[in-house]
Design a protein around this nucleic acid. Structure first.
Lengths: 335, 335
DNA sequence: CTGAAAGCGCTTACAG
DNA sequence: CTGAAAGCGCTTACAG
């Protein structure tokens, strides 16, 4: 029962102790190359018994791989986006570790490429995931110019770039349509930061739904860049003055602020104004009344990003063919 | 102007082209070992010109280092904790990359050690940072049993373990004292998840402040595990029925819910009830009225964690001696 | 089926 | 001050 330092074996030790060559040991482990059934089992057994784990760094050097991938996160994201990034991260980590890859995070600041360049110069990763595509981001252009494989999370117009995205446009269109069908006459839209692509997608969905049903959209029904309580309150005030009877919020944070503002003005939901959100959260679900909103499977989004990337890097992965989807959850706030 | 593949040099190439040995090149780069001024400059110049960057993985193998550190994040953290983790992450990444280290994230799920064991077995990191110490966490015990250096973010009673923490107890004590001095007669405490150490620290601060001023604390003034709107609303209701004239919330999320609940009941802040939070956020700052709260420098907390860890790993770092601190920001909600 | 050898791109005693 | 050589712990043609 002494606290003896457990010896950490190398492939050399194993070869010596077993009286075989390290080539053989390597083959038994990797499963590549021909090897006798008997020897393989002997090696595997020894490994199991002594809990040998190959040195990934050495393996990487020999194979010119790093077994790392990078997740590029914006440094400046707003509170409203936390749940999104956290879920992405979780999905990515899960599939990465399933392939014995690790994920290195790098927080990148707007158009400052230095962190990306550092990662690239140091050759510590085999591929990168760029989260939250900002319109006209330099990062994308830069990554394209490198040989490094990468996928972006978010909408992407460049057909040469691999991406995954939630169906924001479709979801927005569907929820808008539903609200119009339910009898909302004038539906205000409270949007987020206009430089984010997701804002644009949701906006388009809203427009298309109006077009489809032959409804007019007036400039003054659209309130963009609702990033704090003050902006939201102003928007709500103006919308009410204009007699809007429905408010569609682009995400849960905006929606929370919107609800707060309505409550302050003692405007009943849904009897005077129906409210819905294009991104769900617990606080909307548990609100009184519960708020209608769209649920995405963001963990899965992250997983798909990682799978796509691993595939580009030549890993074998059973990429899910089933497309990402969403659910519109109708709750009391739109009844 | 062709898109020629830029050759990626190795130390061997440089040695050959310069007619020196690779030992010399290595020395010129690392600055270790004696080397002639002239040769050093020749090498450095060549490197600069051809933008040579040493292969970190190879360097690592030779030095038995990985130049990675791991950040262990709980998989299940609540919305309320996002800003905290994000700021930590940012601080850690900043100092890590300053030392040419990268940070690998791993999301660990309660008492499931498998992810930690994987990291350890793969030897992909030189040290770990365990964020959010949960009371009696297995992770800590496990890490202690490994040789791997690690530091924890959060309070820590074990004197053998290195940790960094915000001064939650002190801050809680100070803010509580201030509220009592300002004339609050009965101060309710709305606390978070009781299994987190931070909850305990803040609770203690609240108690100590009462003791110091000779005030009694009644069981029924304490409301723990206020993790959703329902629980908070109940707590607020009960507190009001008991005639409390002050409410101290443990964090910004709890406080937001508390404010919402008060607003619904049309209880004016601060005239009927004074409200304060032990963790600040924009939404509290911009609330109407603005909410008194405590500001911590969490980015710096992350930095210090990383610095402490790097030091344990033998890196040279000018560790900041200045202790972490906090500011109590008195706003309208406690006037 | 198995192994000796070279190689991945660095570092570092050791000798000169 | 400089270099030849061994080594970090793996993989992988190549030969047998």
């Amino acid at each position: 029962m002494e606290t003896e330092e457990k010896k950490v074996y190398t492939i050399d030790d194993i070869a010596r102790e077993l009286g075989v060559s390290k080539t053989t040991v390597s083959r038994a482990i990797s499963g590549k190359g021909r090897i006798g059934q008997a020897t393989r089992e002997r090696v595997l057994e020894f490994i199991e018994k002594h809990d040998y784990r190959p040195n990934v760094m050495a393996k990487g050097l020999a194979q010119k791989k790093t077994f790392n991938l990078a997740l590029l996160l914006p440094k400046d994201y707003a509170v409203t986006e936390f749940p999104f990034f956290k879920d992405c991260m979780q999905g990515i980590c899960e599939v990465a570790s399933g392939h014995d890859y690790d994920v290195i995070i790098s927080m990148i600041d707007g158009d400052d490429l230095s962190q990306i360049q550092r990662l690239e110069a140091n050759r510590k990763v085999d591929g990168m995931i760029l989260s939250r595509a900002v319109e006209h981001s330099m990062a994308q252009d830069y990554l394209k110019s490198c040989k490094e494989p990468f996928v972006v999370i978010g909408p992407e117009e460049d057909p040469q770039i691999t991406y995954v995205d939630n169906k924001n446009l479709e979801a927005s269109k569907e929820l808008t349509s539903i609200m119009l069908m339910k009898g909302v006459q004038k539906l205000a839209l409270l949007g987020g930061n206009q430089s984010f692509s997701v804002t644009e997608s949701r906006y388009k969905g809203y427009l298309q739904a109006h077009k489809k049903t032959g409804r007019l959209v007036n400039e003054d029904m659209i309130f963009m860049n609702c990033e704090n309580q003050t902006k939201v309150s102003e928007a709500v005030k103006q919308a009410l003055e204009q007699g809007e009877d429905g408010i569609l919020c682009m995400d849960d944070a905006i929606c929370s602020m919107c609800i707060g503002s309505l409550r302050e003005r003692k405007i009943p939901i849904p009897s005077q104004v129906r409210v819905a959100s294009l991104y769900d959260s617990k606080s909307l679900e548990y609100n009184n009344p519960p708020i209608t909103s769209v649920k995405f499977d963001t963990v899965r989004l992250g997983k798909m990003a990682a799978e796509k990337l691993l595939k580009m890097m030549g890993e074998e992965t059973e990429e899910e063919t089933q497309p990402l989807n969403y659910q519109v959850v109708l709750r009391e706030s739109t009844q």
